[in-house]
């Protein structure tokens, strides 16, 4: 931990912080401000920074008109399922790589990581016919699987890095105590690896929640659409662009993520930094 000693250092540090904060938060502020502006104020030539008359109409229409709630439900189901399944699979795979020795371990790890090297658009090209062949196109299950395919390599590697730090002696002590490999994993390793598990689950959840391309391509029925394509198709299309509505709906959609982060922040930060300090 470095210390800011002179006032020059402090001033420089806070100036830098202010610049970074501006780039991070100004778009968010602008979107929030737009969500509370009526169309008349929103489309003025001289933009206002603070809404003159806070307007809730965009929020009301986003919630009451159109399928936003249904799409939120679809997103919640696919994101939660992919997050949990991804974290469980990554935990098993990561543990195997970190704590067991077998002949094909290194090539297998490389193979899994190499899947991450492909742009996700390219992966989609191969996923699409595969899902089609097993009848999972335009299904929530198919979409969930596609999210797992994308998130699993990085998640596996994150879990692997975490498990590497779990002392072997802990596992050996449990082995001497008579525990099976699965019991060691479930009773000893997983409880102490919860921060990493939550981090990986959140990573997959955010990826699925924010996805546009996969959902847009793999889901064609309106009743199965998730929020990403839902917002795009409703508010921004070739005929019109309802910016106020889009901004209000975006904030409604972002709320669950912000809420989850607020609740699990400690674990998430712990998971992210767990490799840095003992």
């Amino acid at each position: 931990m470095f210390e800011l000693r002179t006032w020059k250092e402090k001033l420089g540090f806070f100036a830098l912080l202010a610049v970074i904060a501006f780039f991070l938060f100004f778009p968010v502020y602008w979107a929030l401000s737009s969500a509370f502006k009526a169309n008349g104020e929103l489309y003025r030539m001289d933009p206002t920074f603070v809404p003159h008359q806070p307007y809730l109409g965009h929020f009301v229409s986003a919630l009451t008109e159109g399928p936003l709630m249904l799409q939120l439900g679809n997103s919640l189901v696919t994101s939660t399922a992919s997050a949990l399944l991804n974290a469980v699979l990554a935990a098993f795979a990561g543990y195997s790589f970190a704590k067991f020795d077998y002949p094909v371990k290194k090539p297998l790890m490389l193979l899994i990581l190499s899947a991450q090297m492909f742009p996700f658009g390219v992966l989609l090209i191969s996923i699409y016919p595969m899902l089609q062949s097993v009848g999972l196109l335009d299904t929530r299950v198919g979409l969930t699987i596609s999210y797992i395919v994308f998130a699993l390599p990085v998640s596996t590697y994150m879990m692997y890095s975490y498990f590497k730090q779990v002392p072997n002696e802990l596992i050996e002590a449990a082995r001497v105590d008579g525990a099976s490999n699965f019991k060691i994993f479930r009773r000893i390793v997983m409880p102490i690896s919860l921060p990493a598990f939550i981090t990986v689950a959140l990573y997959a959840f955010m990826w699925s929640w924010n996805d546009l391309l996969y959902s847009m391509t793999l889901i064609t029925s309106d009743d199965k659409r998730t929020v990403g394509p839902g917002l795009l198709l409703r508010y921004i299309n070739e005929n019109n662009a309802d910016w106020g509505g889009a901004m209000a709906a975006s904030f409604i959609v972002a709320a669950p993520i912000i809420l989850i982060f607020a609740v699990l922040q400690k674990q998430f930060i712990g998971g992210v930094t767990s490799g840095a300090v003992k």
Binding site: P167, E169, L170, E172, A173, A174, V176, I188, P191, I192
Partner: peptide, 14 residues
């Protein structure tokens, strides 16, 4: 039929 005490104690932290 053995019991082992490790250098790092290896106690289950949770």
């Amino acid at each position: 039929g053995i019991g082992m005490v490790f250098q790092s104690y290896a106690l289950y932290p949770h």
